[in-house]
Design a protein around this nucleic acid. Structure first.
Lengths: 352, 352
DNA sequence: TTACATTACTAACGCGCGTTAGTAACGCGT
DNA sequence: ACGCGTTACTAACGCGCGTTAGTAATGTAA
């Protein structure tokens, strides 16, 4: 490395002031009187020396690391196919940058959670934490709460009292299934996005049930299967449904990724979509426009979720206590070919 | 926060030793004699107090932050559709965890690079850096080199002298195009994955050219278009090709994502794939099995790339100087329906 | 002239840790 | 008794910064 580790003392020397003054000027400490002349001298000296304060020293003295932790709770399989992650990162990093902070990312497998959380917090490595994919069985969350550590959940844990940002999974599923009902379907199968330990999966399943019951149809538990995040699970669960001769004309698959597998299973049997089985997915992955047939689905505001989560967390870090603990964002139905509706979305792109 | 900030002094008090001893024991400093009895007392005291060393203090004293920086050089558009990112993260985080380090992630837009790099380095916030998507016009790279900062590129900058991990894009494209030639195609179009400022795009284009020339076919520059990472660019560029009546029977699209758009354009015209136009993509995104027709493509070892990059960087941090500066990993052709070959991959899943 | 506020700074402490130099106790040979 | 090496520690400095308490200089009212 270079010989020149520039410290605030160097800046002070060059500006002909004390190190304290340098600190006061550069940090714009309020309620302190510094003459305009010296202020400018300090700023110029800092610029000329390319001074960048040492992060560790700042953190040690100020007790703030200026780092936000993003914790992903998932298994390695899930992360590799996590299509939202990129958008989440995009949103979070932008927000965090706007206040000069950085993002530390960590994947935690559902087992050894507690220690990892605690280490990061006890070590004061992060000032706040955003947890994506929180689960009920996460004991470490209690520690966060007890220590009153600034925390925001991406996803939700009803009754946990944490700040959280999420979509209304139940309402979204309700919309999707109601759409199918509106198209005349009476027996509608459901494959969830994930096992029922995940709140999102339970909520989506509830939305499915409510839509069916509200429409006065009968709910047949035999038509329900649990997916596991990936396409393969969709393939297997759809096969399971088809094998049992359950006589359904439509299916709500609560994850586009899972739906891709379901599509493969359906076509493998020689059934047509939507003529034999109509399909509605959920998530609106970018590729869903390109599968065959284009997938009717529910769009989630992925980036917006991240932005909101970041905003709440940044407020918490400033000592505010936002009123609203649970932010719920809207979803929207995107009608394409797989559901058999008359008015599908126009061609994927317009010529420019 | 809690009242109890546990410091090494607390541990020392409880174990009845000096703070120095605590530090020596916990860090397992070699060449220091500590009796087994006190060593155990210290360890137990630390455990009982739930002692976790303060990251900032450690960093300040040891001059090491134990944090690796992952820098993504891309525009917001690109990141949202970056399908490799998740796998890259998976690999990196695992490697980094295995030595007790963490991962700081940052997105840098191709403009304001220099300052961002420098800040992170000057602030000593990170011990080493992995740069994904390096570009020739990146001036900040010079600073990294001049300061001899531990750096590994994901992707490559030939002649830059940096450590780098990448696939042989040229050879991969060569394989893809040769496959099409082997199926009898004489006029083969090409849509790149990205603008030619990106080395990967240039390399893939070169592989395409070499395959054509090696086969004794004539290379027609009019058949080449430049994609821009996303499906939309594939849609537009394929339309451009089709509009010009260039009479090609196959196309190599150097990115699956771009290929999805190309597929949409082709089908919109009523052409069939592969009968009218055969297609080979590149990247083997998880979803490429599910588009219609399933996309023949080149598979990249995404996680392996990340693991190798991390390994090299960790070695650099230990003061080693690995011989091999450029690691090149193998790719493989995955034959599916879009190219028209006789022996496509079997059904996407086997029943278990 | 004195008393007191205001302005514009600075000396010095502490954040929690790694690390170097040094010390005390002990054994061993002469 | 003395010197000397080994073992098992510890005192104290420094990492680079934020921040508090304090000071000197100047102005302002009584």
């Amino acid at each position: 490395m270079a010989t020149n580790r520039v410290t605030s003392q160097d800046v002070a020397d060059r500006a002909g002031v004390s190190r304290t003054t340098v600190s006061l000027v550069l940090n714009n400490v309020p309620g302190v009187q510094i003459s305009e002349a010296t202020r400018l001298r300090v700023l110029q000296a800092a610029r000329e020396l390319n001074y960048v304060p040492d992060a560790a020293a700042q953190a040690l003295a100020s007790r703030q690391s200026q780092i936000i932790g993003l914790i992903l709770i998932r298994t390695p399989d899930q992360i590799a196919s996590d299509v939202f992650l990129t958008q989440t990162l995009d949103g979070l990093i932008k927000s965090v940058h706007s206040v000069g902070m950085r993002l530390l990312i960590d994947i935690i497998e559902p087992e050894n959670q507690e220690t990892t959380y605690l280490q990061m917090i006890r070590a004061k490595r992060i000032d706040g934490i955003i947890i994506s994919g929180p689960r009920f069985d996460d004991g470490a969350l209690n520690v966060l709460r007890e220590n009153n550590f600034p925390t925001v959940l991406l996803g939700q844990l009803p009754g946990s009292g944490f700040y959280s940002v999420d979509v209304d999974n139940c309402a979204a599923a309700y919309t999707a299934v109601t759409h199918l009902i509106g198209l005349g379907h009476k027996r509608i199968a459901c494959i969830t996005n994930a096992p029922p330990i995940y709140t999102a999966a339970v909520d989506r399943l509830n939305g499915y049930r409510q839509a069916i019951e509200t429409a006065g149809l009968s709910h047949d538990p035999a038509l329900v299967r649990f997916g596991e995040f990936d396409s393969e699970s969709g393939y297997h669960q759809m096969n399971s449904l088809l094998n049992n001769g359950l006589g359904f004309s439509a299916a709500f698959v609560a994850s586009d990724l899972v739906a891709y597998g379901a599509i493969a299973a359906i076509r493998e049997r020689g059934f047509r979509i939507p003529e034999d089985i109509a399909l509605v997915g959920m998530d609106d992955l970018p590729v869903s426009r390109f599968v065959n047939p284009p997938l009717t689905t529910i769009r989630l505001p992925a980036i917006e979720l991240a932005l909101q989560a970041a905003e709440i967390l940044l407020r918490l870090l400033q000592g505010e206590q936002p009123e609203q603990r649970q932010v719920i964002l809207d979803t929207s139905l995107v009608v394409r070919g797989s559901c058999g509706a008359k008015q599908p979305e126009p061609a994927p792109f317009q010529e420019r």
